[in-house]
Simulated assay, not measured.
Amino acid sequence: MNIVQSLPAKAGSGELAGRAAIVTGSTSGIGLGIARVLASRGAAIVLNGFGPVDAIMKEVNAISAEFGVGVRYDDADMSKPDDIARMIAAAEDHFGAVDILVNNAGIQYVAPIDEFPPEKWDQVIAINLSGAFHAMRAAARGMKSRGSGRIVNIASAHGLVGSPFKSAYTAAKHGLIGLTKVAALELAEQGITVNAVCPGYVWTPLVEKQIDDQARSHGIPREQVVRDVLLKKQPNKRFSTVEEIGGVVAFLCSKDAASITGTSISVDGGWTAE
């Protein structure tokens, strides 16, 4: 199964009108927030990820209706290179080009390094790092032929600093920032920028569930979990919003960011300033 549904391309309006963007891992959370912001600026969108088909198609139709842009859903598995190549090719065929690639897909697993299951290590690296490589490899070809393109990799504060028990995630995100730098150097003369965004904690349904789970397991109030556990390292003591992350991505895709490439932008409330 490849394409679940595709809505026709529409003109859209805004600074990104006429461009098409793939956002991986965008059926919920940060990725969906990024996709909605890009659509609000006029970009046609390819949503990608897993979840209940009815809920995904509700988002597809909502984005198209609200922003007047073409929206396509592709269920490519970001751990499978052939799926990724097919998704890029299908989007290019449908929209004529992939102008923007946002590598957002990612998973997490937490365990001490001596107890970390090897299969979980392989899975995290495959989706969080190798998936981004395969998507960049496929999308860069078309971007080079057109002499323009924007690639934004959603890394993490853990791409800049380490945390205990997150060996695979931290390794993958550090690797993603290194990959960002290499690709930026290689593609700079072709009019393609490659940057990374490094969020700290962002408010999503998954984080809300984590708060409830930790409050129960530690026997402490939700507010204490937020301040003393999750946001312990974020000096501003607040979650970023998916709209804030989307706004940074949209800026990096704009003409005003044409000379910004090979860099990592932290959106972490000051976490990595220490």
Rank of each mutant, 00 (worst) to 15 (best):
H94E: 10
G131W: 02
A188E: 10
A35E: 02
R72N: 09
K181P: 00
V102F: 02
D54M: 08
V207G: 05
G200W: 01
Q224I: 03
D268S: 08
K80S: 14
Q234L: 04
G147M: 11
G147V: 03
G12I: 01
A138M: 06
A11K: 14
G96I: 06
H218S: 11
G191W: 02
S259M: 15
F95C: 06
I154T: 03
I125A: 14
A90I: 07
S266P: 06
L185W: 01
G159D: 05
V98F: 02
S13L: 07
A250N: 06
D77Q: 11
F116I: 08
Q123M: 15
C198V: 01
M87N: 06
L176C: 04
V53A: 13
Y169T: 11
V124T: 11
Q5C: 10
G33P: 03
A215E: 04
A11G: 14
V37F: 01
E208F: 04
D256Y: 06
A105L: 07
L47H: 03
V226M: 12
L32W: 00
N48T: 06
A11F: 04
R19F: 00
G25H: 03
N153I: 01
G70P: 01
R146L: 10
K120M: 15
N103V: 00
S79P: 02
P235H: 08
Q234T: 15
N2Y: 07
R141M: 08
K181V: 09
V194T: 07
K80T: 12
E244A: 09
